[in-house]
Write a protein that binds this DNA or RNA. Structure first.
Lengths: 114, 114
DNA sequence: CACCTTTACTTTGCGTCGTCAAGTACCACC
DNA sequence: GGTGGTACTTGACGACGCAAAGTAAAGGTG
């Protein structure tokens, strides 16, 4: 048990990972390293051991597909993209996120720190 | 493994629980059932088995204290309140939340669903 | 071709934590 | 002194992020 800011930050990040990844992939087809780089840009640090299993889960759930593409600098890459079902799912996650943001806003409204 | 909206919603909720609870308690002293009710108002469903251990962790970490108070309709209640350290921690969580919201906004900016 | 580096994908095990479910305890009222 | 409502506790379980080690493909260098 380790209740510090870093840990809580990690907890919060976990909750939105799926959503952010699907959202990134909905805008443009990418392979995992691209996704990690994009997330890093947004200050969401994610490592391989987190991303790969998650992508696999999303694929198994029918939200993602991928195609192999050759690379000039190493092994071939898996380029992921949303399926129609994935797009539908993403729309629901948009609402879910908005609801959560509303909920947080509501519970923190009278927070003296603000 | 069960990748549906309900599950993802639960995941997101997990991430902000600590924050919301501390925030509620910073505004006013409460006992667990009050907290559950307030969270429910904000559409954040939390059950006893989640809240009690979390409050204990927050107390053990030095962020909360409690005092017993008699009740007219049952056993005495533990009224929780933030410690000075808890207030400091909460301030940091405010920043953490803002950062996360920014990050999500950034990754979802080009999401066609929006 | 043997070796090394870089890049990409995979997998195992661990730790944390929310949740379920069952249990304990206190109080009021009849 | 049962009975019902309220409050707090706890053990087992499962999901999942993450660290770390492993496998594999391509290219460069001699």
């Amino acid at each position: 048990m380790n209740l510090n800011v870093e840990n809580t930050k990690a907890q919060m990040r976990k909750g939105v990972l799926e959503y952010c990844i699907l959202s990134l992939l909905s805008a443009e087809e990418m392979y995992p390293s691209d996704v990690i780089a994009k997330l890093k840009d947004a200050k969401l640090i994610v490592v391989e051991g987190t991303l790969y299993p998650l992508l696999t889960r999303l694929k198994d759930a029918g939200y993602l597909t991928y195609r192999w593409e050759e690379s000039r600098s190493g092994p071939p890459r898996k380029y992921y993209q949303l399926t129609p079902v994935g797009r539908k799912f993403l729309k629901e996650l948009d609402d879910t996120w908005d609801e959560l943001a509303q909920a947080v806003k509501k519970t923190t409204r009278n927070n003296p720190a603000r």
